[in-house]
Design a protein around this nucleic acid. Structure first.
Length: 303
DNA sequence: CTAGGGGTAAAT
DNA sequence: ATTTACCCCTAG
C-alpha cells in the first residue's frame, strides 16, 4: 500500500548517471554492487534503477510522459522539435570517441523548458548535481579539489562567466551542510551510511542531521574579519557559561540562516556569501572556545 | 536478471 | 492534471 514515496536525491541521480556511464545502461545490478555507488544507492533496488532511468529518459525526450500510442490531443506543440536546438547543455555529445557505451541521455534537467517566445534566461542547472557528478565520476582517492571539479564541469558542460565564484560558494555550502566532506582542500561525498532503514518507516527526525560540523581544528578562520571575530570572542569569554552557550547557539542559527540565504542567492550575484562566511567563521570559533573551556558541550552530531 | 508493458497512488 | 517513485508481470 503505501510506499511513502522517496524522491531521488541528487546524489542518487548523479550516482546513477555515473554508474551508467561506467557500466552501461542496463547493468543495474552491477552498478548497485559497485562500491563506488553502493554507498549512495544502497536503498534502491535494481528495478528501482531501471525505472528511474526510464523516468529520466522519458522526461528528457520530447514531450512526453509517454503513454506511447495515445493519440491524445496533448498540448499543441507550437514548434516542431528542432533537433539542433541551441540551448543545450547538451548531452554528452562527442566524448572524444573513447568508449562511450551509452550516451547518457537523461541530462535534460529543467532545461527542457520551452523557449517559446519568452523565457530567455533560465539555464541554471543546479550546480549541486554537477558537483556531485564530477566527484563521483572522477573518483579521485581522497576526493577532488575545487580546480579539478571546475575543470570537469567546464569541460563537460557550460561555464558561466563567474562560474568559479559560484562553485566556491556552492562547495562551501555543501561542505557546511554535510553533503560534502572537505579534507585538505579536497571534497568528497559525505558518507550516507548512517541511516539504514528508510524504506517504510520514519525518516523524519533526521531534521537534526549534521549541520555545521566543521573541522575547526587548526584554523581556517584567518581570513576576513578576523578582528571582528576576535572581538566577539572576547565578549564571549567574559560571559557566563549560560550566556556563552546561548550566544554560540545563536551564532550557529545565524550562520545557518545566512548560508541558506547565500544558497538561494547563489545564482547570479550573491553578496550574501560574505556574510555567510563571517557568520560561519564566528559560529565555528564560538563553538571551539566554548568546548575549550567547558568540554562537556557536545553539540556536534555524528561524524 | 533485464527490458518493457501496464498500473497505482503520492506529490506537485 | 501531470510527474514520478514503485510495483507487478511476462518474455527472453
Amino acid at each position: 500500500m503505501g510506499a511513502p514515496k522517496q524522491k531521488w536525491t541528487q546524489e542518487e541521480e548523479a550516482a546513477l548517471k555515473a554508474g551508467v556511464i561506467k557500466h552501461g545502461a542496463g547493468k543495474w545490478r552491477t552498478i548497485l554492487k559497485d562500491p563506488e555507488f553502493s554507498g549512495v544507492l544502497y536503498l534502491r533496488s535494481n528495478v528501482d534503477l531501471k525505472d528511474k532511468w526510464r523516468n529520466m529518459s522519458v522526461m528528457s525526450n520530447g514531450w512526453g510522459s509517454r503513454d506511447k500510442s495515445r493519440l491524445a490531443v496533448k498540448r499543441i506543440p507550437h514548434i516542431a522539435k528542432s533537433e539542433e536546438n541551441s540551448l543545450a547543455l547538451s548531452s554528452t555529445v562527442v566524448q572524444s570517441d573513447e568508449e562511450e557505451i551509452v550516451d547518457a541521455k537523461p541530462l535534460a534537467v529543467s532545461g527542457a523548458t520551452p523557449q517559446i517566445a519568452a523565457a530567455p534566461k533560465r539555464s541554471i542547472v543546479r550546480l549541486d548535481n554537477l558537483i556531485m557528478e564530477a566527484i563521483t565520476t572522477l573518483k579521485e582517492p581522497g576526493g577532488s579539489n575545487k580546480t579539478t571539479i571546475a575543470a570537469y564541469i567546464e569541460e563537460k558542460y557550460w561555464a558561466p562567466p563567474d562560474f568559479k565564484r559560484l562553485l566556491s560558494a556552492k562547495l562551501k555550502y555543501l561542505a557546511g551542510t554535510g553533503k560534502l566532506v572537505k579534507i585538505k582542500r579536497k571534497y568528497r561525498i559525505a558518507p550516507t551510511l548512517p541511516f539504514q532503514d528508510r524504506r517504510r518507516n520514519s525518516m523524519l527526525l533526521l531534521e537534526g542531521r549534521q549541520r555545521i560540523s566543521h573541522k575547526v581544528n587548526n584554523d581556517d578562520i584567518n581570513v576576513l574579519t578576523k578582528s571582528q571575530i576576535d572581538l566577539e570572542l572576547a565578549k564571549l569569554r567574559s560571559m557566563t557559561p549560560q550566556e556563552a552557550a546561548a550566544a554560540a547557539a545563536r551564532a550557529v542559527a545565524e550562520a545557518e540562516a545566512a548560508v541558506a540565504e547565500a544558497e538561494e542567492a547563489a545564482r547570479e550575484a550573491d553578496v550574501a556569501e560574505a556574510d555567510a562566511e563571517v557568520a560561519q567563521a564566528f559560529a565555528a570559533a564560538a563553538m571551539k572556545t566554548l568546548k575549550g573551556r567547558n568540554n562537556s558541550q557536545k553539540m556536534m552530531i555524528r561524524a
